[in-house]
Structure formats: structure tokens, C-alpha cells
Simulated scan of single mutants.
Amino acid sequence: MDTIDELLSFLEEEDVRFIRLTFYDMYGVQKNISILPDLLPRALQEGIAIDTFAIPSLSARSGNTLYLKPDPKTMSVLPWRSNEGNVISLICSIYEADGSPCAYDGRRMLQETLKEAVQSDLFLNLSTQFEFYLFLQDEMGNDTHRPLDYASFMDVAPEDKGENIRRDICLTLSEMGLQPQASYHQAGFGQNEIDFHSSSPLQAADEAMIFKWVVKILANANGLFADFSPKPLENGPGNGMHIKFSFSKHENRKKIESFIAGILQHIRAMTLFLNPINASYARFGKEKAPDHITWSYEFPYELIHIDPKNKHIFELRSPDPQCNPYLCFSLLIKAGMDGIAQDLVLERPLGATCDLGTIQRLPKNKEEAYACAINDQWLLSIVPRELIELYR
């Protein structure tokens, strides 16, 4: 839906009975309030008031009342809630009582960053690749850490018991207007991966948020527990949220390299947000997860891998699914823009003869990541100190 009028017409034509106004706190945790259709015009024009007293990352600001204004472009029909009239979901922007944007709205932060990118003549698309585990629930419906299967990388049924639910997830996402691209069994017992098509950074972040919610709902409906934590099993591979950056084939190569160099220069400062919980750091350096600040054409498991056949595309492999995609995409794009502004030179790629002992590493724990963030002048120039403190 591109306009308010189109959205209101859709409500009437498609017998919409219920509307979920979705928003996200600064940690990327989904929240919502449900309204009836007759309240939507007010929500679109004035916003719906919410009390943020019990939402820590939003109550940190002064005042407890914020207002949600839905974005018509994010409308999706919820396929599993359509027995008696349709239910739709809308992602909201968050505003203060005086009508100003909330400084703690990650989606707004990304939108502002994208405006800056356009002004700098920078255009790119992003896509995500999510890893997650499927565990069994017990007879009482409680979550366990017993894997759904004991299959290995890219196995097929009957060893791969997640094939059907992955298909259901992808078909449901497609019904909702999202763009999954591929799905398969990952290397861990009960571990799966679903990848998305490339899209605008804002759409990619919206889809990443909705994706995790859909997976959890469909898993639970099938007696399963979907675990997106970075290290669910001590002796198993961790879960990553790899981010693929795509530039135009005609983009200046030096500009792309400076963008990558900017990310590498600022990655230690950003890691607190890309890997926000203690368990995030148990994943680094194990089972093909990166821990050195390097890039490569040849080795696909380094921090940044550049596609040797399509050098306008590269993948960042350190983030995990616990991050807030809005905030992380914003920071990564700003880091790349800073690299371009400084005209940074991309150092030589990792080679087979490199001495890893001489290469800088990602923070080894959350305490180190916090120290890197709170003491970094570049990060402090774009992120309020209070926000860094929230992630401590």
C-alpha cells in the first residue's frame, strides 16, 4: 500500500477486522498494540498513544508516553489469522508527544541514514541470511534443547526433518509480500538457514524483523521452539545473521572498496550492537564464525567475503540474529560512508601465508565490546552515549 487512501480502501474491500500496530524497542524486540479498523484513520493522522513505562529501552528517555504512526507501505495480511475476516499488520514509526521523531526509534535512525546516503550519491541494497535452530517442545509445550533432527549441511529428508516447516515458512512469508530466496539445513543438529532477496536497506530490515516473528509462530504451531540465539548449543555451530551488501555493477570500484574499509575500521566499535548479548562472543572463532578483522576473495568464512565474480557484492559475517537490524544497518552504512569520506584504502586481502597473530581481532567478550564503543569518538558522534549505555 503506497497511500493512506489505498490502505483504507483495502480494509473495506478485504473485510479487515483487526489491525496489529507493530513497533520495536531499541534492542529490536517486537512489541504491538491491536486496534479495530475504525481507529486506523486516527492512528495514521495523529498516532496511537502508548505507555512506555515498562519498556526499558524506551522509558530511558524523559516522559512515558509515545505515539505510534503506522507506515502504509508495510501492510501485510497475517495468513494464520484469517478465518473470520482478515488481520493485518503495520510497522509503525515512533513519535514524541510534540510530534517530533523519537530519538530511540531504530527504524527512524535507518531512514535518516538512508537520506544522508542519497545526498552523498550512495545507493545500495541489502539482504540477510538467517541461521536458527529448531528444537522440540515437551508434552507440556515447554521448550527444550533437543534438536528436531540430527542431519548435517544441506541434507535432505528423511534425515532433514525441517524441510516441511521451512517450506511453510517461505510460503507464508511470500503470502505476506516478503521475499525469501533459499532455504536449507545448516551444519548443526536441528539448524536451518533461510536467505532473502536483495532489497532496499529499510525493506530488508523490515523483512528481517517480520521473519523472526513468523518463524517463531509457525514453529510453535508445529510443537517446536525456534532459537535465534547466537550459541544455542555449547558444542554446536552458532547462529549468524549474515548481511550481504549489493552495489550497482557500474558503481566506482574505489568507492566500494572505501566503503568496505570504513566498515573494517569501525567494526570493533560497532560490535556491541551487532553482537549484543554475552553469548554472542562464544560464537566467534568457532565453526566458521569469524573473529579476525579481515576480508578475502578466496576464503568465504572471513569477516568480509567479496564475491570474486561479482566484486560489487560483499558479505559481512559477524552479526548475529539478536541484533536490531534497523540500528545495525544504519551504523554499517554510516561506517561505509565515513570510509568513502576519508577516501580509505582497502588493505590487501587475507592470503594463505598471512600470520593471523598479527591481525586485529573482534572483541572477545561483551565487556571489551562496550569499552570499544564507549571510547570511540566516531561512534559517539553518531550514537547518543545513553544508547551505548543501554547496551552495556
Rank of each mutant, 00 (worst) to 15 (best):
D149C: 09
N324H: 08
K364R: 14
A43N: 06
L224S: 01
Y281P: 10
A279I: 03
L178C: 15
Y301K: 08
Q119N: 14
S229R: 12
Q45W: 03
K366N: 05
Q203S: 14
T113Y: 11
L362P: 04
Q191N: 09
I4N: 12
P79C: 05
I260E: 06
N275G: 04
L7H: 08
P201S: 12
R166I: 06
R166M: 11
M140E: 09
T65E: 11
V29H: 07
Q360H: 08
N164I: 09
T294Q: 09
Q265H: 07
F273V: 08
P237A: 11
R317Q: 07
L126G: 13
A97L: 13
Q203G: 10
E131K: 08
R253C: 04
A60S: 15
A269F: 00
P237F: 07
I19C: 05
L379N: 07
G236C: 06
F132A: 02
E96Q: 13
M140I: 05
I50M: 05
T271L: 02
Q129P: 06
K288W: 15
E234G: 00
L124R: 05
Q342K: 15
S258L: 03
A373W: 03
L264Y: 02
A205V: 02
D25H: 01
N32L: 06
I313E: 12
A371N: 13
G162H: 04
E302M: 10
I88S: 01
R17G: 06
L68H: 08
I263D: 04
A289C: 11
S93Y: 09
A103S: 15
P72V: 07
S59V: 13
R385T: 14
A43R: 02
A208G: 15
E367F: 10
F10M: 04
T271D: 00
S9E: 15
F135L: 10
G106C: 08
D291H: 12
E12N: 10
H250F: 12
P349W: 11
Y67S: 07
E367R: 13
E139S: 14
A54H: 11
R317K: 15
Q137F: 06
D320M: 13
K366I: 14
I35N: 02
A289V: 03
D38P: 10
I194Q: 01
R283I: 09
P325W: 13
I4F: 04
F123S: 14
K212L: 09
F211N: 01
F284A: 00
V16A: 10
G285D: 00
K255Q: 14
F211R: 10
D195M: 07
P37K: 03
I210Y: 03
I88F: 10
D338G: 02
P79H: 02
D355A: 04
I217Y: 04
R146Y: 14
N310H: 14
S381R: 00
R81F: 13
P237H: 04
K69Q: 00
D338T: 05
T113H: 11
G28I: 10
S246Q: 13
K309N: 10
P101C: 07
L58K: 00
F228V: 11
R108K: 14
D227W: 01
F135N: 06
H305A: 12
S246H: 12
G85H: 04
D343C: 06
P384N: 13
S258M: 00
W213V: 10
D2V: 09
Y184C: 04
H145D: 11
H185P: 08
H145P: 00
A371F: 08
R167I: 07
L274A: 15
Q111Y: 12
N125W: 02
